[in-house]
């Protein structure tokens, strides 16, 4: 049987469409889609409201969109704002604007240049944050790179964790192979302006437990740090350190107890 060619929808102005299978869905004004939708390309330049789930190969949101169900996309770019009430599954996600996901976020490459807030868990091969991320659950990745503000209420678990501090960062627990936390030394104009508006908040990472094979920390407040090789830099306040092979301490670090195991 020959497959019927899928049709396009294009809404310019304000309109309502039924769900279903389409090739391209383009919204230039404001659109309301009544049920689940499946398409190849989803592009929204105005505002879109989808009452069901959406499944698409590529999604680009330049305006604002609200999905009441789950969203599945192979590739997704958010330049405006997107709210998803369910889960987002996408191999490549780029968030340049802001987005709120009430469920879980699953991907292969997650790139945040704006603000993202996820109520559930995040898992991905790579996570790169140069903005702000708030995660309600756990965060798992092979590589986690952050140059900005993040708050993780659960466990941050990644093979390589590379954090350059900017303002307050927080995670309940951190675990992985290589963990490196450094203060951002770039005092360029942008950061000065940011500091001016945000107030003189200190760059600092707070965590209860940090465990890894190779741990190197600066300006970190933690209750327990455990690892094979540990380097503690300036500005650290740590209640207890347990290490296997080596421990290097900066003279400006405040350490409670330390023990070689």
């Amino acid at each position: 049987m020959e497959k019927a060619k899928k049709r396009n929808i294009s809404i310019s102005g304000s309109g309502t469409a039924a769900g279903g299978e389409y090739d391209q869905v383009k919204v230039n004004g404001s659109a309301h889609i009544n049920s689940d939708i499946e398409c190849e390309i989803f592009k929204c330049n105005g505002s879109a409201h989808i009452e069901g789930n959406i499944k698409t190969a590529t999604a680009k949101v330049n305006g604002s969109s609200h999905v009441e169900g789950n969203m599945e996309a192979r590739e997704m770019i958010i330049n405006g704002s997107t709210d998803i009430d369910g889960n987002l599954t996408s191999s490549e996600v780029k968030i340049q604007g802001s987005s709120t996901i009430k469920g879980d976020l699953k991907g292969k490459e997650i790139n945040v240049r704006g603000t993202a807030s996820i109520t559930g868990n995040v898992s991905s091969d790579e996570i790169d944050v140069k903005g702000q991320v708030i995660i309600g659950g756990d965060c798992e990745a092979e590589s986690f790179l952050a140059r900005g503000h993040f708050k993780i209420n659960g466990l941050l678990n990644a093979g390589n964790i590379d954090i350059e501090l900017l303002r307050l960062c927080e995670a309940k627990e951190i675990g992985g192979e290589n963990i490196s936390v450094k203060r951002n030394l770039d005092f360029s104009g942008f950061k000065k302006i940011l500091k001016f508006f945000m107030g003189q908040e200190k760059d600092q990472l707070t965590a209860e437990v940090i465990e890894g094979d190779h741990v190197s920390l600066e300006y970190t407040h933690a209750k327990v740090v455990r690892g094979n090789t540990i380097e503690i830099g300036p500005g650290c306040v740590i209640d207890r350190i347990e290490y296997k092979q080596s421990l290097e301490l900066d003279e400006n670090a405040k350490i409670g107890t330390q023990e070689k195991i």
Binding site: S123, E140, E142, N157, A158, G159, G175, G176, E177, N178, E211, G212, D213, R226, G227, N228, E242, I261
Partner: peptide, 21 residues
């Protein structure tokens, strides 16, 4: 405990976290 487990099984924190992931 995690500490005793790593000792008994002769694995590192990294391995344990990777397997969990």
């Amino acid at each position: 405990s995690k500490k005793d487990l790593l000792e008994a099984a002769n694995i590192s924190y990294g391995q344990l976290y990777r397997w969990k992931r």
